[in-house]
């Protein structure tokens, strides 16, 4: 039961590169490397500190299931996916956009052509690396991931989401069009490791996998997600190569839970932001390299906290700016 606490020197979280510049065949003005750390989060300095974590703002192409609190906040942007994505980078200060194709969740979805168009639109509107989430329905996976992957070819986006019983389509698209993959498993270190092995056996290189150990939200099983992330980081630094990958955390239920949903409209933004912040901040402390939120106000709060945690550990330009410059 008791695991050793101290990382073995030399073990590192694998580095995953996201985004591609013109020179690399893409159009991004910034690209990121995530991972690389040889210590627990925010404890290292120099190379052992790895690369700084990134904050992603989640947007979607079909707002019917999106939180009304966020929709109120972003107003007309919600109707224009490209503009929403652009604002995420410029107005709201996110490091990257995570685009969810919520449209694919409606019954009998078959407008596959729209996926490619939207991807192209968002690529055109943004300058930073992207995360793109495809379908949740195995029956259409193959077509959805092909369209998305193809439209984003060359941009090295982070493609979501591979799961233990449906990873082949995502992996195939990532292999064909040069993307990285989010590997999500339900809050269990063993399942996370298993999926990495399964993906490895599809020939997807390990440096193109980001682990998502799944986060519900604060107060709803968050303790499990938190500990699974800590544990993954811990065994990775002990030398478990299958788990030495960067992690992504998105507390996806944050804005749906009773506490937030039923908050007084006056304070709803405040509650939503705090709920997202406490989960995302804790995920950073547990070892997440990419944290995703939906309320623009949470981004600023996280940015400040991250700055205080990184103080002195990274060169200024890498921590806050354009790493490829």
């Amino acid at each position: 039961m008791s695991e050793e606490h101290n990382p073995e020197p030399g073990n590192r979280i694998l580095e995953v590169r996201l985004g591609a510049t013109k020179a690399e065949g893409g159009t991004r003005e910034r690209v990121y490397t995530v991972g690389g750390a040889g210590t627990f989060p925010f404890l290292g300095a120099g190379p052992a500190a790895g690369h700084p974590p990134r904050i992603a703002l989640e947007i979607c192409d079909d707002t019917r299931t999106w939180s009304p609190i966020v929709l109120r906040e972003v107003g007309d942007l919600a109707e224009d996916t490209g503009a929403w994505a652009a604002a995420a980078e410029t107005t709201f200060g996110a490091d990257m956009v995570r685009l969810s194709f919520t449209s694919t969740r409606q019954r009998g979805f078959d407008d596959f052509a729209s996926l490619g168009t939207t991807v192209e639109e968002v690529i055109g509107a943004t300058k930073y690396p992207l995360i793109v989430e495809g379908s949740t329905e195995p029956a259409i996976d193959s077509e959805v991931y092909r369209r998305i992957g193809e439209a984003a070819e060359g941009e090295r986006v982070l493609l979501g989401t591979a799961e233990a019983d449906r990873y082949r389509s995502v992996a195939a698209s990532a292999l064909a069009y040069g993307h990285a993959v989010v590997a999500q498993t339900p809050i269990d270190i063993n399942l996370a490791k298993q999926l990495n092995i399964l993906l490895h056996e599809t020939a997807l290189p390990p440096e193109r996998i980001v682990i998502d150990p799944y986060t519900g939200t604060l107060g709803y099983g968050f303790e499990y997600s938190y500990s699974v992330m800590e544990r993954i980081r811990s065994v990775a630094l002990q030398g478990d190569a299958d788990l030495a990958r960067p992690m992504i955390s998105s507390a996806i239920d944050s804005l749906n839970v009773k506490e937030v949903r039923e908050a007084d409209p006056e304070t709803a933004d405040e509650v939503a932001i705090r709920w997202e912040f406490y989960a995302a901040f804790s995920a950073l402390i547990a070892g997440a390299e990419i944290v995703c939120v939906r309320h623009p106000g949470t981004v600023a709060l996280l940015r400040e906290a991250l700055r205080a945690l990184l103080e002195g550990s990274h060169p200024q330009e890498e921590a806050y700016g354009d790493e490829s410059a």
């Binding site: 304070t267 932001i273 705090r274 406490y278 804790s282």
Partner: peptide, 11 residues
Amino acid sequence: GPASTMAALTL
């Protein structure tokens, strides 16, 4: 504030 307190206590 109450929102922060509730989130902190929940954490």
